[in-house]
Protein backbone atom coordinates (compact mmCIF):
# COMPACT_ATOMS: atom_id res chain seq x y z
CA UNK A 1 0.00 0.00 0.00
CA UNK A 2 1.10 3.53 -0.71
CA UNK A 3 2.25 5.33 2.43
CA UNK A 4 0.94 8.79 1.55
CA UNK A 5 -2.17 9.90 3.36
CA UNK A 6 -4.25 12.84 4.44
CA UNK A 7 -4.45 13.40 8.16
CA UNK A 8 -7.78 14.76 9.29
CA UNK A 9 -7.31 17.80 11.50
CA UNK A 10 -11.00 18.80 11.39
CA UNK A 11 -13.44 16.27 9.95
CA UNK A 12 -16.21 18.67 8.90
CA UNK A 13 -19.88 17.90 9.30
CA UNK A 14 -20.31 14.83 7.13
CA UNK A 15 -17.25 13.76 5.18
CA UNK A 16 -17.30 10.34 3.55
CA UNK A 17 -15.84 8.49 0.58
CA UNK A 18 -18.38 8.06 -2.21
CA UNK A 19 -18.35 6.66 -5.72
CA UNK A 20 -21.09 5.64 -8.15
CA UNK A 21 -22.89 3.56 -5.52
CA UNK A 22 -23.77 -0.13 -5.20
CA UNK A 23 -26.55 -1.84 -7.10
CA UNK A 24 -28.48 -5.09 -6.66
CA UNK A 25 -28.67 -5.06 -2.85
CA UNK A 26 -32.03 -3.37 -2.25
CA UNK A 27 -33.58 -6.76 -1.57
CA UNK A 28 -31.44 -7.22 1.54
CA UNK A 29 -31.98 -3.66 2.71
CA UNK A 30 -28.88 -1.96 1.31
CA UNK A 31 -29.63 1.23 -0.65
CA UNK A 32 -27.74 2.60 -3.62
CA UNK A 33 -25.73 5.27 -1.76
CA UNK A 34 -22.97 6.89 -3.83
CA UNK A 35 -22.37 10.56 -4.59
CA UNK A 36 -25.42 12.73 -4.01
CA UNK A 37 -24.58 15.16 -6.82
CA UNK A 38 -23.36 12.76 -9.47
CA UNK A 39 -22.49 15.38 -12.08
CA UNK A 40 -20.13 17.27 -9.79
CA UNK A 41 -18.57 13.99 -8.71
CA UNK A 42 -17.97 12.97 -12.36
CA UNK A 43 -16.48 16.35 -13.29
CA UNK A 44 -14.03 16.04 -10.37
CA UNK A 45 -12.77 12.65 -11.49
CA UNK A 46 -12.51 13.75 -15.11
CA UNK A 47 -10.49 16.87 -14.21
CA UNK A 48 -7.81 14.80 -12.46
CA UNK A 49 -7.80 12.21 -15.24
CA UNK A 50 -9.37 9.37 -13.24
CA UNK A 51 -11.72 6.62 -14.22
CA UNK A 52 -15.19 7.98 -13.58
CA UNK A 53 -15.90 5.46 -10.80
CA UNK A 54 -12.94 6.42 -8.60
CA UNK A 55 -13.79 7.29 -4.97
CA UNK A 56 -14.01 10.98 -4.06
CA UNK A 57 -14.27 12.67 -0.70
CA UNK A 58 -17.78 14.05 -0.36
CA UNK A 59 -18.42 16.72 2.25
CA UNK A 60 -21.52 18.61 3.32
CA UNK A 61 -21.82 22.25 4.49
CA UNK A 62 -18.51 22.59 6.33
CA UNK A 63 -15.82 20.39 4.84
CA UNK A 64 -12.69 18.96 6.44
CA UNK A 65 -9.25 20.44 7.16
CA UNK A 66 -6.74 17.85 6.02
CA UNK A 67 -2.96 17.65 5.80
CA UNK A 68 -1.05 15.66 3.21
CA UNK A 69 1.75 13.48 4.55
CA UNK A 70 4.48 11.55 2.76
CA UNK A 71 3.46 12.27 -0.79
CA UNK A 72 2.30 14.66 -3.46
CA UNK A 73 -0.85 14.64 -5.47
CA UNK A 74 -3.02 16.61 -7.88
CA UNK A 75 -6.51 17.36 -6.66
CA UNK A 76 -9.60 19.36 -7.51
CA UNK A 77 -12.70 20.56 -5.74
CA UNK A 78 -16.06 20.57 -7.47
CA UNK A 79 -19.33 22.12 -6.37
CA UNK A 80 -19.85 25.61 -5.06
CA UNK A 81 -17.14 25.61 -2.41
CA UNK A 82 -14.96 28.09 -0.53
CA UNK A 83 -11.58 26.63 0.35
CA UNK A 84 -7.96 27.53 0.96
CA UNK A 85 -4.70 25.74 0.40
CA UNK A 86 -2.31 26.29 3.31
CA UNK A 87 1.20 25.67 2.01
CA UNK A 88 3.88 24.17 4.21
CA UNK A 89 5.69 27.53 4.16
CA UNK A 90 2.57 29.16 5.72
CA UNK A 91 1.50 30.78 2.46
CA UNK A 92 -2.27 30.76 2.03
CA UNK A 93 -3.75 30.33 -1.46
CA UNK A 94 -7.40 30.95 -2.10
CA UNK A 95 -8.88 27.94 -3.86
CA UNK A 96 -10.86 27.89 -7.11
CA UNK A 97 -13.37 25.18 -7.86
CA UNK A 98 -13.06 23.19 -11.12
CA UNK A 99 -9.32 23.97 -11.33
CA UNK A 100 -6.74 21.36 -10.38
CA UNK A 101 -4.00 22.12 -7.85
CA UNK A 102 -0.99 20.29 -6.56
CA UNK A 103 -0.51 19.37 -2.92
CA UNK A 104 2.88 18.44 -1.50
CA UNK A 105 4.00 16.85 1.72
CA UNK A 106 2.91 19.05 4.62
CA UNK A 107 0.39 21.15 2.64
CA UNK A 108 -3.08 21.52 4.10
CA UNK A 109 -6.44 21.80 2.43
CA UNK A 110 -9.03 23.78 4.37
CA UNK A 111 -12.50 23.23 2.93
CA UNK A 112 -14.43 26.01 4.60
CA UNK A 113 -17.98 25.74 3.28
CA UNK A 114 -20.34 24.85 0.50
CA UNK A 115 -22.11 28.02 -0.57
CA UNK A 116 -25.88 28.00 -1.04
CA UNK A 117 -25.52 24.28 -1.62
CA UNK A 118 -24.99 21.15 0.43
CA UNK A 119 -22.42 18.82 -1.16
CA UNK A 120 -18.96 19.29 -2.59
CA UNK A 121 -16.30 16.85 -3.80
CA UNK A 122 -12.56 16.59 -3.40
CA UNK A 123 -11.12 14.30 -6.06
CA UNK A 124 -7.47 13.36 -6.42
CA UNK A 125 -5.41 11.77 -9.17
CA UNK A 126 -5.71 7.94 -8.78
CA UNK A 127 -8.25 8.28 -5.99
CA UNK A 128 -8.38 7.53 -2.27
CA UNK A 129 -7.93 4.03 -0.89
CA UNK A 130 -11.42 2.77 -0.09
CA UNK A 131 -12.78 -0.52 1.17
CA UNK A 132 -15.09 -2.17 -1.32
CA UNK A 133 -18.21 -4.15 -0.61
CA UNK A 134 -20.69 -5.17 -3.33
CA UNK A 135 -18.71 -3.27 -5.93
CA UNK A 136 -18.59 0.09 -4.19
CA UNK A 137 -16.64 1.84 -1.45
CA UNK A 138 -19.45 4.33 -0.76
CA UNK A 139 -20.06 4.84 2.92
CA UNK A 140 -23.52 4.03 4.24
CA UNK A 141 -23.51 5.13 7.87
CA UNK A 142 -26.82 3.44 8.62
CA UNK A 143 -25.75 -0.09 7.70
CA UNK A 144 -22.14 0.72 8.63
CA UNK A 145 -20.79 -0.54 5.34
CA UNK A 146 -18.25 0.77 2.88
CA UNK A 147 -15.01 2.61 3.60
CA UNK A 148 -13.94 3.59 7.12
CA UNK A 149 -16.17 0.84 8.58
CA UNK A 150 -19.18 2.67 7.22
CA UNK A 151 -18.62 5.75 9.39
CA UNK A 152 -18.10 9.38 8.49
CA UNK A 153 -14.53 10.56 9.02
CA UNK A 154 -13.46 11.68 12.48
CA UNK A 155 -10.59 13.76 13.80
CA UNK A 156 -7.04 12.32 13.57
CA UNK A 157 -8.05 9.63 11.11
CA UNK A 158 -6.02 8.96 8.00
CA UNK A 159 -7.30 8.79 4.43
CA UNK A 160 -4.77 6.90 2.32
CA UNK A 161 -4.24 7.77 -1.31
CA UNK A 162 -3.75 5.19 -4.01
CA UNK A 163 -0.66 6.52 -5.75
CA UNK A 164 1.57 9.58 -5.52
CA UNK A 165 1.16 11.36 -8.79
CA UNK A 166 0.72 14.93 -9.81
CA UNK A 167 -0.18 16.12 -13.27
CA UNK A 168 2.38 18.22 -15.08
CA UNK A 169 -0.19 20.76 -16.22
CA UNK A 170 -3.18 22.12 -14.39
CA UNK A 171 -6.60 21.38 -15.77
CA UNK A 172 -9.78 23.39 -15.45
CA UNK A 173 -13.24 23.99 -16.75
CA UNK A 174 -15.72 26.83 -16.45
CA UNK A 175 -18.83 25.44 -14.90
CA UNK A 176 -21.68 27.06 -13.03
CA UNK A 177 -24.13 25.15 -10.91
CA UNK A 178 -27.55 26.27 -12.05
CA UNK A 179 -30.32 26.80 -9.55
CA UNK A 180 -33.51 24.87 -9.79
CA UNK A 181 -36.87 26.64 -9.82
CA UNK A 182 -39.21 23.69 -9.83
CA UNK A 183 -38.66 20.13 -8.83
CA UNK A 184 -40.29 18.13 -11.59
CA UNK A 185 -42.12 15.00 -10.52
CA UNK A 186 -44.19 12.12 -11.83
CA UNK A 187 -47.36 11.24 -9.98
CA UNK A 188 -46.89 8.46 -7.45
CA UNK A 189 -48.53 5.06 -7.33
CA UNK A 190 -50.71 6.16 -4.40
CA UNK A 191 -51.61 9.56 -5.87
CA UNK A 192 -55.31 8.90 -5.33
CA UNK A 193 -54.80 8.29 -1.62
CA UNK A 194 -54.78 12.06 -1.29
CA UNK A 195 -57.66 14.52 -1.23
CA UNK A 196 -58.26 16.90 -4.16
CA UNK A 197 -57.26 19.73 -1.87
CA UNK A 198 -54.03 17.95 -0.89
CA UNK A 199 -53.13 17.36 -4.55
CA UNK A 200 -53.81 20.98 -5.34
CA UNK A 201 -51.65 22.17 -2.42
CA UNK A 202 -48.87 19.80 -3.47
CA UNK A 203 -48.62 21.29 -6.95
CA UNK A 204 -49.30 24.94 -6.16
CA UNK A 205 -47.75 25.84 -2.80
CA UNK A 206 -44.19 26.26 -1.62
CA UNK A 207 -42.51 23.77 0.68
CA UNK A 208 -39.52 24.44 2.86
CA UNK A 209 -36.58 22.05 3.22
CA UNK A 210 -36.35 21.11 6.91
CA UNK A 211 -33.22 20.92 9.03
CA UNK A 212 -33.90 17.21 9.48
CA UNK A 213 -32.47 16.49 6.05
CA UNK A 214 -29.53 14.19 5.44
CA UNK A 215 -28.26 11.60 2.96
CA UNK A 216 -31.27 9.39 3.77
CA UNK A 217 -34.06 11.81 3.18
CA UNK A 218 -35.20 15.37 2.72
CA UNK A 219 -38.01 16.37 5.03
CA UNK A 220 -40.32 19.12 3.90
CA UNK A 221 -42.49 21.43 5.94
CA UNK A 222 -44.77 24.41 5.46
CA UNK A 223 -47.76 22.60 3.99
CA UNK A 224 -49.62 19.58 5.29
CA UNK A 225 -50.71 16.96 2.79
CA UNK A 226 -53.83 15.16 3.85
CA UNK A 227 -54.43 11.46 3.20
CA UNK A 228 -57.98 10.43 2.49
CA UNK A 229 -57.40 6.72 2.20
CA UNK A 230 -54.97 5.13 4.59
CA UNK A 231 -51.94 6.91 6.03
CA UNK A 232 -50.19 3.53 6.17
CA UNK A 233 -49.96 1.15 3.25
CA UNK A 234 -48.53 -2.34 3.07
CA UNK A 235 -44.78 -1.86 3.12
CA UNK A 236 -43.21 -2.03 -0.31
CA UNK A 237 -39.96 -1.20 -2.08
CA UNK A 238 -38.71 2.36 -2.45
CA UNK A 239 -36.33 4.13 -4.80
CA UNK A 240 -34.54 7.42 -4.48
CA UNK A 241 -36.69 10.41 -5.31
CA UNK A 242 -39.92 8.87 -3.98
CA UNK A 243 -41.97 11.39 -1.98
CA UNK A 244 -43.74 9.64 0.89
CA UNK A 245 -46.34 11.30 3.10
CA UNK A 246 -46.52 9.99 6.68
CA UNK A 247 -49.61 10.56 8.87
CA UNK A 248 -48.36 13.98 10.06
CA UNK A 249 -48.74 15.29 6.48
CA UNK A 250 -45.13 16.50 6.04
CA UNK A 251 -43.66 14.96 2.87
CA UNK A 252 -40.30 13.17 2.92
CA UNK A 253 -38.21 12.73 -0.25
CA UNK A 254 -36.11 9.57 -0.26
CA UNK A 255 -32.44 10.33 -0.95
CA UNK A 256 -29.47 8.07 -1.75
CA UNK A 257 -29.18 6.30 1.66
CA UNK A 258 -32.94 5.76 2.07
CA UNK A 259 -34.55 2.77 3.77
CA UNK A 260 -35.30 0.22 1.06
CA UNK A 261 -38.87 -0.48 2.19
CA UNK A 262 -41.52 1.97 3.28
CA UNK A 263 -45.12 1.94 4.36
CA UNK A 264 -46.34 5.47 3.67
CA UNK A 265 -48.29 6.49 0.57
CA UNK A 266 -46.27 7.84 -2.34
CA UNK A 267 -47.65 11.07 -3.75
CA UNK A 268 -44.96 11.64 -6.39
CA UNK A 269 -41.45 10.75 -7.55
CA UNK A 270 -38.76 13.29 -8.48
CA UNK A 271 -37.59 12.83 -12.08
CA UNK A 272 -34.05 11.50 -12.54
CA UNK A 273 -32.94 14.65 -14.38
CA UNK A 274 -33.60 16.82 -11.31
CA UNK A 275 -32.07 14.59 -8.65
CA UNK A 276 -28.56 16.15 -8.49
CA UNK A 277 -29.90 19.64 -8.04
CA UNK A 278 -32.52 18.48 -5.54
CA UNK A 279 -29.82 17.12 -3.25
CA UNK A 280 -28.07 20.51 -3.25
CA UNK A 281 -31.03 22.32 -1.66
CA UNK A 282 -30.10 23.59 1.79
CA UNK A 283 -32.42 23.61 4.81
CA UNK A 284 -34.66 26.65 4.57
CA UNK A 285 -34.79 26.54 0.74
CA UNK A 286 -38.20 26.93 -0.80
CA UNK A 287 -39.31 24.44 -3.39
CA UNK A 288 -42.27 23.96 -5.67
CA UNK A 289 -43.30 20.82 -7.48
CA UNK A 290 -44.33 20.58 -11.09
CA UNK A 291 -45.99 17.56 -12.64
CA UNK A 292 -44.62 16.05 -15.87
CA UNK A 293 -45.52 12.94 -17.84
CA UNK A 294 -43.28 9.90 -18.24
CA UNK A 295 -42.19 10.61 -21.83
CA UNK A 296 -41.26 14.17 -20.85
CA UNK A 297 -39.25 12.90 -17.85
CA UNK A 298 -37.39 10.48 -20.15
CA UNK A 299 -36.67 13.26 -22.63
CA UNK A 300 -35.39 15.54 -19.85
CA UNK A 301 -33.08 12.79 -18.63
CA UNK A 302 -31.62 12.35 -22.13
CA UNK A 303 -31.00 16.08 -22.19
CA UNK A 304 -29.35 15.95 -18.77
CA UNK A 305 -27.11 13.11 -19.96
CA UNK A 306 -26.11 14.90 -23.13
CA UNK A 307 -25.29 17.99 -21.08
CA UNK A 308 -23.17 15.97 -18.67
CA UNK A 309 -21.33 14.30 -21.57
CA UNK A 310 -20.73 17.69 -23.18
CA UNK A 311 -19.22 19.05 -19.97
CA UNK A 312 -17.01 15.98 -19.53
CA UNK A 313 -16.08 16.13 -23.22
CA UNK A 314 -14.72 19.65 -22.80
CA UNK A 315 -12.18 18.42 -20.27
CA UNK A 316 -9.04 17.15 -21.84
Amino acid sequence: MNKAYFEIIRPGIHSTLQDLGRSNQYHIGIPFSGSMDKRNYLIGNKLVGNKLKEASLEFAYQGPLIKLKLGKVTGVITGNVTFNILRKNSKIEKGSCYKTFELKDGDQLDIISTNKSVYGYFSIKNGFTGEYIWGSCSVNTKAKIGSNDGEKFGVNQKIYINKNESLSESNKIDYFNSKIEFIRVLKGTNFNFFSEKAKQIFFSKEFIVSKLTDRMGMRLEGQKIENIAEANIKSEGLIKGVIQVPPDGNPIIMLSDHGTIGGYPKIAIVISADYDRLTQLTPGSKIKFKSVELNEAERLYKLYEIETQNILGQIR
Partner: peptide
Protein backbone atom coordinates in the same frame (compact mmCIF):
# COMPACT_ATOMS: atom_id res chain seq x y z
CA UNK B 1 -31.72 -3.48 -14.25
CA UNK B 2 -30.02 -2.10 -11.14
CA UNK B 3 -32.20 -3.45 -8.32
CA UNK B 4 -35.10 -5.81 -7.73
CA UNK B 5 -36.99 -5.29 -4.49
CA UNK B 6 -39.59 -7.86 -3.47
CA UNK B 7 -42.08 -7.02 -0.72
CA UNK B 8 -45.26 -8.69 0.56
CA UNK B 9 -47.24 -8.30 -2.67
CA UNK B 10 -45.24 -5.95 -4.90
CA UNK B 11 -41.99 -6.11 -6.82
CA UNK B 12 -40.06 -2.95 -7.69
CA UNK B 13 -37.59 -3.23 -10.56
CA UNK B 14 -35.23 -0.26 -10.74
CA UNK B 15 -33.26 0.42 -13.88
CA UNK B 16 -30.62 2.71 -15.31
CA UNK B 17 -32.52 5.15 -17.48
CA UNK B 18 -29.49 5.69 -19.69
CA UNK B 19 -29.65 2.00 -20.70
CA UNK B 20 -33.34 1.06 -20.81
CA UNK B 21 -36.71 2.77 -20.35
CA UNK B 22 -40.09 1.90 -18.89
Amino acid sequence: VTNITPSYNKLIISYDLSIINF
